[in-house]
């Protein structure tokens, strides 16, 4: 079973700060991590390989420092890593990214399964999986939370719905996007990590020429969508703070709600209005 896992390096968005002056993101000092969903994809791939013959290839597109996520994936049990890195890839939207990843997968050759995370926490688009699948003309299943059976030509999986589950059988080769419910990712082992950081580690770096794409097809130039502006979200309202004794402030609040246009929405008011 040949599996390709798509893994992205992302900034840890839990402590993102903005530059007050420019409204831009302060990237300095932001820790980079493997995108959380993608860890579950790696774990699933390694488990699927265990107990049968197979190969797990981890593929990532990003700056050179993204090599760290490949080492970590190999530490978790992946066989090899490929980093797509080229200045020409910078600024890519999901159209250009899915094209670049698709081209690289074609170069890797035959595969049975492609696994990716449902979404990346920096862009939160959840678009790459289905777009890569469409580029490769294979079916996809999103929100996978359980892989039940893998046969030669089909895979049976459970996917999450808004309020329940759906069990599907999909023809192989296929692409799955996975969510956290799927499994508990293992930690990389020390000896595998050392293996992944040796000079002869099974990691390759490909540039635009290696995957056979032209500069104008990838990165910002190859993108169909463009960010024209970023700004800090504005949430502020003209707030009024009510001060004083609880009974009094609650009374004041209720008076204001009653007079507001929201009053009709409130059951408690409509009954008092009838009096």
């Amino acid at each position: 079973m040949k599996i390709v896992v798509l893994v992205k390096q992302v900034p840890d968005t839990t402590d993102v700060r903005l530059d007050e002056k420019t409204g831009n993101l302060i990237r300095e000092g932001l820790e980079s991590i493997i995108n959380p969903d993608d860890r579950h994809a790696i774990e699933a791939a390694v488990r699927l390989k265990e107990g049968r013959s197979g190969r797990v290839t981890v593929l990532s597109m990003g700056p050179m420092q993204a090599i760290d996520v490949l080492s970590e994936s190999i530490g978790m049990g992946a066989d090899e890593g490929i980093l797509l890195s080229d200045k020409a890839f910078a600024g890519a939207d999901t159209w250009a990214t899915s094209f670049t990843l698709g081209k690289a997968i074609e170069k890797i050759g035959l595969f049975d399964l492609i696994l990716c995370g449902r979404q990346a926490i920096d862009g939160d688009t959840a678009q790459i999986g289905p777009q890569v699948a469409d580029y490769l003309r294979i079916p996809h299943v999103t929100y996978v939370c359980d892989v039940e059976e893998v046969k030669k030509k089909t895979i049976t999986a459970k996917r999450r719905l808004e309020n329940g589950y759906e069990q599907v059988r999909c023809a192989l080769p296929a692409l799955l996007t996975v969510i956290g419910e799927l499994n508990l990712p293992r930690y990389p082992t020390m000896d595998r990590l050392i293996h992944a950081c040796r000079e002869k580690a099974p990691i390759k770096v490909w540039n635009a020429a290696d995957v056979g794409v032209q500069t104008r097809q990838v990165g910002l130039e190859g993108s169909l969508t463009h960010v024209i502006k970023t700004f800090a979200p504005k949430f502020k309202r003209e707030g009024e703070i009510l001060n004083g004794d609880t009974k009094v402030v609650v009374h004041e609040l209720i008076e204001r709600l009653k007079k507001s246009e929201g009053a009709t929405a409130c059951k408690a008011f409509s009954s008092t209005c009838k009096l």
């Binding site: 939207d93 999901t94 159209w95 899915s98 862009g123 939160d124 688009t125 959840a126 678009q127 790459i128 999986g129 289905p130 777009q131 699948a133 469409d134 580029y135 996809h140 999103t142 929100y143 999450r160 719905l161 808004e162 993108s223 169909l224 969508t225």
Partner: peptide, 23 residues
Amino acid sequence: ASHIGQDLAPRVSRRVGAGLTAD
């Protein structure tokens, strides 16, 4: 940007060659 929308929109966008903005 529901389960169905987020499954279908990226697939369609790639198919017809259209840019897509999520969520």
